[in-house]
Amino acid sequence: MGLDMKNMKIQDIAPGMVTATDVLASSGHLLLPAGTKLTTRYIRMLHARDISYVAIESDEESPSPDHQAPPRPTVVPDEHVNRLMKRFQYNDLKNSFIKELVRICTSRLMDRA
């Protein structure tokens, strides 16, 4: 574990990599502290915040196979969708707040699948 680090383009970042420095938003707000192991969700958040480069600990072993992101499915399995809809059964799916919440839950299911 060392001080060595390399700046990597956000497109080349993969889950399992570890941040070498704090990642700050353009506002100066802390997004991720140094030493954070990146996950698919964190990377998506960095994309959303328009972060283009991240300093990565370079002598961290490259992500082991079980840390590598599995190929991203394009559809969420039916059983997960059914379960989600069952959980929302007492809510009005046409309400704009609920609609957005269902969308976020579905996109997280895709990340997890």
């Binding site: 969700r41 958040m45 959303a48 379960r83 069952k86 959980r87 929302f88 059964q89 007492y90 809510n91 009005d92 309400n95 704009s96 707040f97 609920i98 609609k99 957005e100 919440l101 976020i104």
Partner: peptide, 28 residues
């Protein structure tokens, strides 16, 4: 087990000055 999500009272959402786009950044 699938635990149901409590029903929303739409008024609670309307009295706040928020849009649906505010939800995802808050979750992150």
């Amino acid at each position: 087990e699938p635990m149901v999500i409590p029903p929303l009272d739409p008024k609670a959402w309307e009295v706040l000055d928020l849009t649906p786009d505010d939800i995802e950044p808050m979750v992150s």
